[in-house]
């Protein structure tokens, strides 16, 4: 495996905390290896900043294999960067060219206040799930697993929505900062399964109300969320959420 190196210019959003005003800072990195991941490139920058008595750039990450949903950078205006169906931790520098300038910002939304630099507070997502994103079954009271067959196609569809990693790219990409794709994905996941039916109405009402309470905007069908979602959640989740919300209002 041969590798080539390049020079990359970075414009990174720096912000001390949620109260302070942020600004862009520029940095230049030489010897960026094409096989580095994007986050490893930032690690290298931080090592340099630390040795120069600078303030390392803070950003969220954990698994670095695209499943935990911690990372959520907005790169050159696009949540998770240029590669389709790829979380930023899975993006590699071979997607860039020598001399490129790369702008890195946090996921911006009123409901996601900045903690420091590129780290934002996404606890609003926890509160949306807390409002109703579950089946209220107690430990120990579950019936035998094969008692209720689930149509294979439906089970697959449920999975397609359940695969959401909760990164918040959908919010960052939406001109309205709506959390509809995230919320709709959980509603659609549980709707597809028989286990989700008893609480169907209560769930959609509670989750949508919570979403609004958190300060996320409404959906205007821009579909930017679907375009940036690293796991390909379909915007049909939002249609399903809205349909169910209306039905639930009249059912009650």
């Amino acid at each position: 495996m041969s590798s080539s190196t390049m020079t990359i210019h970075l414009k990174i959003w720096r912000q001390k905390n949620s109260h302070s005003k942020g600004r862009f800072e520029t940095y230049t990195l030489d010897q960026v290896d094409e096989h580095m991941s994007f986050l490893e490139m930032l690690d290298v920058l931080n090592e340099q900043l630390i040795m120069e008595d600078g303030d390392p750039v803070e950003f969220d990450y954990d698994c670095r294999e695209g499943i935990c949903g911690s990372c959520n950078l907005v790169i050159n205006g696009k949540a998770h960067g240029p590669k389709h169906l790829t979380a930023v931790c899975q993006l590699h520098m071979r997607n860039y060219n020598d001399g490129d300038t790369v702008v890195i910002e946090p996921a911006r939304a009123a409901a996601f206040p900045v903690i420091k630099d590129l780290v934002v507070d996404r606890t609003a997502f926890d509160r949306i799930i807390e409002a109703g994103g579950y089946v209220s079954v107690k430990t120990g009271s579950a019936p035998e697993a094969n008692l209720i067959p689930v149509n294979q196609k439906k089970a697959n569809q449920a999975f397609d929505f359940a695969t959401c990693i909760g990164c918040g790219a959908c919010v960052a990409a939406c001109p309205n900062s709506s959390a509809s794709l995230f919320t709709g994905a959980k509603i659609a996941h549980l709707n597809k399964l028989p286990q989700g039916q008893p609480e169907r109405n209560e769930r959609v009402l509670a989750m949508v109300d919570q979403m609004q309470k958190e300060g996320f905007g409404d959906c205007s069908n821009f579909a930017e969320c679907e375009a940036v979602c690293p796991v390909g959640i379909s915007i049909s989740a939002i249609a399903e959420m809205r349909r169910d919300y209306m039905k639930a209002l009249f059912d009650d």
Partner: peptide, 20 residues
């Protein structure tokens, strides 16, 4: 019992054509 519990929570395990 874990499998029973997870299915009741809505964990979308792989299924056969029969739905089992």
């Amino acid at each position: 019992e874990i499998i029973d519990q997870a299915v009741a929570q809505g964990v979308p395990f792989a299924r056969e054509y029969s739905g089992l």
